[in-house]
């Protein structure tokens, strides 16, 4: 195995593209190096992005935030501005693993590992996050929901990598939240994850995005669930409609950590709770 530390994202893309054998990008390594140690992957080349200048920075501007691809969960949690603007995204990222894992785990790593249960992904999608994708020749920006296309599969071409994740500026009177259900409180994989981001106008929900994780092969945007609460003040009737729409959208697996019936039911319950948190964060009163 060879190990390279390119000085730019473009150089990293070139190295990945050129490699004839198995080539992997290394960010925090909390998925990749576990697979390496378990013999699930046998890389010929590992390209570590962490020496690229600015790749560990969080930049904020009038347009929003640009989060470099090597920024760890712990660093996201320490950024007061980001936490204030997108508390749901930060709480989702901070749920990943232990403090030790937080010291290394990145958002693009969580996304590109492409687990259906990845915690940060629903929150990023609900927030309207985009991935800045760099290839050997060109750069493109894609909505996060277009990156993962199935368990372990992404839409990135050979040689492409994510250089940064961007988040729009949070609108006034908006709020987001992420909740997951796990059998253990910590160090477990979501049985259901739900992210909701919404905006209020005169106390009424004007816009919403509802995204479920861990209940289908990829995170899913549930338009019917958003419609269920738009135009409401999150009264009980709207909450029941939201829960029903979320449960109806589930297409989960059946495993030792949660049966299909259980996951479907929990999706509705968690949706109500997450909606209330997002609503209150947006300044709404229940």
């Amino acid at each position: 195995m060879r190990y390279e530390t390119p000085a730019s994202a473009k150089e990293a893309a070139g190295l990945l593209k050129k490699e004839k054998g198995a080539a992997f990008l290394l960010a925090g390594g909390t998925d990749l190096l576990v697979k390496l140690k378990m013999g699930i992957v046998e890389p010929d080349l590992v390209v570590d992005i962490k020496r690229i200048p600015k790749i560990s920075d969080i930049q904020s501007s009038a347009k929003g935030f640009t989060i470099g691809a090597a920024v760890s969960g712990a660093e996201l949690g320490e950024h007061a501005g980001l936490k204030k603007a997108w508390p749901g995204v930060v709480e989702a990222a901070n749920l990943i693993g232990s403090d030790q894992i937080q010291g290394r785990a990145t958002l693009p790593g969580n996304l590109c590992n492409a687990s259906p249960a990845a915690d940060s992904v629903p929150a990023l999608i609900a927030a309207g996050a985009k991935a800045v994708v760099v290839g050997p020749l060109k750069k493109r920006t894609v909505p996060v929901e277009k990156v993962m296309i199935g368990p372990g599969k992404t839409s990135l071409a050979k040689g492409e990598l994510i250089e940064a994740i961007t988040l729009p500026k949070a609108e006034p009177r908006s709020g987001d939240a992420y909740l997951r259900f796990t059998p253990r409180t910590e160090m477990d994989i979501a049985v259901v994850g739900i992210a909701i981001s919404l905006k209020l106008e005169r106390g009424v929900i004007k816009k919403a995005r509802v995204v479920l994780g861990a209940v289908a092969p990829t995170a899913i945007v549930v338009a019917a669930a958003a419609r269920a609460i738009v135009g409401s003040k999150l009264d009980d009737k709207a909450l029941d409609k939201l829960a029903a729409a979320c449960s109806a959208a589930c297409n989960p697996i059946d495993d030792k950590r949660g049966t299909i019936e259980y996951r479907v039911r929990v999706a509705g319950v968690l949706a109500k709770r997450a909606a209330k948190i997002a609503f209150q964060r947006a300044g709404g009163s229940l």
Binding site: G29, L33, V34, V46, D48, S72, G103, R104
Partner: peptide, 11 residues
């Protein structure tokens, strides 16, 4: 930063 050294490469 606190990390698990088993999932960090020596290099």
């Amino acid at each position: 930063r606190l990390v698990c050294s088993c999932i960090v490469l020596g290099v």
